Amino acid sequence: MVILMMFAGAYQGKRVLVTGHTGFKGSWMTSWLVRMGAEVCGYSDGVPTKPSLFEDACLASLIRHEIGDVRDAERVRQLILDFRPDFVFHLAAQAIVSNSYSDPLHTIGVNVMGTACVLNSLREVTWPCVAVIITSDKAYFNVEWLWGYRENDRLGGKDVYSASKGAAEVIFSSYWYSYFSKTECPVRLATARAGNVIGGGDWAPDRIVADCVRAWKAKQSVQIRSPRATRPWQHVLEPLSGYLQLGARLVADDRFNGESYNFGPKAEQNATVVELLSDLAGIWGFESSDDAYVVTNDIPFHEAGLLKLNIDKAMAELKWMPTLNYEECVDFTGSWYRDVVKNGGSASEITARDIAFYENKAGERGCVWAK
């Protein structure tokens, strides 16, 4: 059943372009937008994994599905001018940290020039349009302090992946001041930063949950590199609700134009990698978590030990707040894989079930966007 009143009905009947729609977050975003009655056009360079949520949920049959490189400036331009979107959610990215070490130029090209191509194409838009440019919590120069990074903290990083995300933010800022800050401009846009997202249907390499499920399906223990590393784990629907709320608020109020917002869990929701794995192992069916994983000393690249975001700005200005606690986040994630991968359930039906449950939880807990 289509829910029309989520986000004040901002997406019902609207044209929404999602770049990176075949990826993990893009597939969940596409599923949710279709559920809300949006006309979705997706643009990606292909399906990034086998298996994939995009294919398993049969999303290509529900949207306009376009294949192309986000660095192809003319192709992106022509698509935007032809589709005439009311909203653009730019998620297309090289999102795997390990790949940035093996192919740094590709990472820089996709994450920096890809973002520039989208922004440059939006310069030609002559109709009211809202764009949300999604980067990452890795955009911040991480010194592993104990408090969360705020939107005005230093950008950049010691590795190529972090630098590419910080650079995308700098490109956004320069384009906004140069072209989109004028009052007569029909385009309103902002950036969104989130990280450590987990949830069903993530099959990317070097992702902790996906690595677990691949190993456990093969009746093997998963190898983990940094068991005591702390992460602010959040379910994929949490930042997506933030992106969607940001888009809806940009339509209603130009005060948010040109701003950046963090989306993350509550401050107390941090947990170590080993705590997450132990909880997921219980949902999968392990009697002892000792059988679920082994610790390896093989750490081929730098990984941050602590990275937190301060979400006060999003809570105060957008009236957004996270919905799920840590236990619910893990249960959501583990149950999807158990029900789909282990028990053979429908990826489309389980994903729709989770979105509906999340919407209901958000409404019960007073989230403004769910009313």
Rank of each mutant, 00 (worst) to 15 (best):
V2K: 04
M5D: 12
A8R: 13
A8Y: 08
G9S: 07
G9V: 10
Q12V: 08
G26C: 09
T30I: 14
W32P: 13
G37S: 11
G42K: 13
K50Q: 15
C58H: 14
L59W: 08
L59E: 02
H65G: 05
V70Q: 00
R75P: 04
V76Q: 00
R77W: 02
D82T: 15
F87Q: 07
F87K: 08
H90E: 02
H90V: 10
L91Q: 05
A92R: 09
Q94P: 06
I96M: 06
I96T: 15
S100H: 06
S100Q: 02
P104C: 04
V112N: 00
V118I: 14
L122E: 00
R123S: 00
R123E: 00
E124L: 13
T126D: 03
T126F: 02
K138T: 15
G157M: 04
G157F: 08
Y161P: 09
G166N: 01
S174R: 14
S174L: 15
Y175K: 11
Y177G: 05
S178N: 06
T183M: 05
C185H: 07
C185R: 11
P186N: 00
V187G: 07
R193M: 07
N196L: 05
A204T: 14
A210R: 08
V213D: 00
R214S: 10
A215Q: 04
Q223M: 14
R228H: 14
W233G: 01
W233Q: 02
Q234W: 03
Q234G: 09
L237Y: 04
G247V: 11
R255M: 10
G258R: 08
S260N: 09
Y261E: 01
F263M: 11
N270P: 01
L276N: 05
L276H: 07
L277F: 07
D279F: 04
I283H: 02
F286I: 05
S288A: 13
V294K: 10
T296I: 03
T296H: 01
I299S: 09
L306P: 04
K308Y: 04
I311Q: 02
D312E: 10
M321Q: 12
M321L: 03
E327Y: 11
E328N: 04
V340G: 07
V341R: 08
N343M: 13
N343C: 12
G345W: 09
Y358M: 10
N360G: 07
G366D: 06
C367Y: 07
